[in-house]
Computed example of a mutant assay.
Amino acid sequence: MKAPLHPHQGERLQALHSYEMIDSDPEKDFDDIVQLASSICEAPISLVSLVDSERQWFKASVGLDAMETPIENAMCAHTILEEEFLEIEDTLGDERTVDNPLSSPGPNLRFYAGAVLKTPDGLPIGTLCVLDHKPRSLSPLQRDAIKVLARQVMVQMEMRKALSSAATMRQEVDHRVKNSLQSLSAFARIQERSLQTEEARSAVSKIMTRIDAVSTLHEYLYKTDAGSNVDLGVYLDKIVDYLRQTAPANVEIDYAPVSVTVGSQQAVSVGTLVNEFVANSFKHAFPDQRKGTVNIALSKSASGAVSVICADNGAGMTPDIPSQSGGLGMKIAEIACMELRCELDLKISNRGVTASIEFKPEPRPQYRVQHQAQYQA
């Protein structure tokens, strides 16, 4: 017989769909649980079954090729009406399952036991169940094990829901921060035009350099799922694209991205340094419209150290001015290097300027949901 609707069917379905789990890819964590349930209960079939309005869908399964069954054939639809657990020792001897096509010869599913998957609000959304081809019963230990494993299924589902919610919130924050920073940058540029002294304009310019670097980072984070870590090669590529738009017609930027994962704050520091170097090269290195190139090189050594080298082939500077406020912008460079815990190697000659740093990448641990590439029943 078809199971009656749950008394809180609407709320139950809303809770089920909030996990965004139905029709998702197989995952090893759930596959491991059904394997363990099958072994403990000595049952050939074990399922993580999510009971929707018109079907039950299997997030994980052992011993069954089908990915879903119609709700009319769903033994688990009866289980979600129970408080915690349902065991049917012989499906042909129970009115709820005697006419179920799965109990008939062929499928011949004669034994069923399932523990309810409950949300923190107590709403049933599915089961962890085991089935056998012969009538039987579980031992008290096996029943307890199924209940414990059902709670572990919900722990996994809650964790994925929390991660998804956090990722969505982080993207929204990154989007809003990016927009706010762009507005602030535009305001600073307007104010810069009205400043009377070179010192004031230089100070505002340095502020805008930092704003632009952070804005680029948040745009990158918003469009990806980078979280607290950043692919520095991709991030610098974004900055270089921005700098190319502001480059004088006579100057080219040469950069080849290399994939290196660093912490997001480290990326901002590197981006600030690169931004400042290139902006100063545009301003000072190529007078009289002479043609030139600014080169940015990113690499990672066998020891894991990250190297960033910025160089131009411009007019250069005299060696006696590296500590002045002009040129590279030593104050910004000092702050960036302090954040990266590294030293700035600055080489100045009449053939150009080269600035290089080497630092240890410090990406933060990521907690991501792992998906199997392909499901095998």
Rank of each mutant, 00 (worst) to 15 (best):
M1W: 10
P4V: 12
Q9K: 12
L16P: 03
D25M: 11
D29Y: 04
D29G: 09
I40H: 08
L50Y: 06
S53F: 15
R55G: 09
W57R: 00
T69G: 00
E83S: 13
L86C: 11
D90H: 15
L92G: 03
D99Y: 15
L102N: 11
S103L: 12
P105G: 09
G106E: 13
L109W: 14
V130K: 04
V130R: 00
L131T: 07
P140V: 15
L149H: 07
A150L: 13
R151K: 15
V153H: 03
Q156T: 14
A166P: 00
V173Y: 12
D174L: 04
H175M: 15
L181Q: 02
L181F: 10
S183L: 12
S185F: 13
Q191P: 00
Q196L: 12
E199D: 13
A203I: 15
V204L: 14
S205T: 12
S205Y: 10
M208V: 15
A213E: 05
V214P: 00
E219L: 10
L221F: 01
K223N: 10
V240Y: 01
Y242S: 07
P248Y: 02
N250T: 11
V251E: 04
I253F: 06
A256W: 07
Q266V: 01
Q266D: 00
L273S: 02
H284K: 08
A285W: 01
F286N: 02
Q289Y: 04
K300I: 13
V308M: 02
M317L: 11
D320G: 07
C337D: 01
E339L: 04
E343G: 03
P363D: 06
R364A: 14
A373D: 08
